[in-house]
């Protein structure tokens, strides 16, 4: 754990400090590395016992599309990792309704259960965070 967390003794350095972290995913997978490396940050954040939310906005919703098969491009398919997040106690996955609709997608097309938010709900949630990290 200390290697993945950057040698930080989580318990000592950040004990008792719980902030609201939102990771805003706005890039499609595979075309660029942002989605994959963003997911790596999310997994590490689980070790710090913070209040973590993931938002999927714009092309970020494509990260969650079911049925990704990457053999032909010889790149690792990381979409199953979103299903594993629950095991890390990361359960707040929010999807922007307008981004889904604009791409002809519905919740049925997504690999994990999510909460779909209206503009107003997403704006409120984003504004309520302490730290917003965008990919």
């Amino acid at each position: 754990m200390t290697e993945s967390t950057g040698g930080i003794e989580v318990e000592e350095e950040t004990a008792g400090r719980v902030k609201k972290f939102m990771f805003v995913n706005r890039k499609a997978p595979y075309g660029t590395i942002y989605a994959l490396e963003g997911l790596e940050v999310v997994l590490i954040s689980a070790a710090f016992d913070q209040d973590v939310s993931l938002a999927f906005v714009d092309d970020g919703v494509y990260e969650l599309v079911k049925g990704q098969a990457t053999k032909g491009i010889d790149v690792k398919n990381f979409s199953p990792t979103y299903r594993a997040l629950e095991g890390y106690d990361i359960e707040k996955l929010y999807v922007d309704a307008e981004s889904l609709k604009a791409r002809g997608l519905t919740e049925e097309n997504l690999i994990v259960p999510v909460e779909v938010l209206s503009n107003e709900e997403m704006a409120d949630l984003m504004a309520a965070q302490d730290v917003v990290i965008s990919f």
Binding site: E3, S4, T5, G6, G7, I8, V10, E13, T14, R17, K19, F21, E40, V41, I44, S45, A47, F48, Q50, D130, V131, V132, I133, S134
Partner: peptide
């Protein structure tokens, strides 16, 4: 060189985190 935890820790310790990309 260090781990990704350094980013999360910075988010916790700093008053503001700003992303440039």
């Amino acid at each position: 060189i260090s781990g990704l935890g350094q980013l999360v820790e910075s988010g916790i310790q700093a008053d503001r985190l700003v992303v440039f990309g």
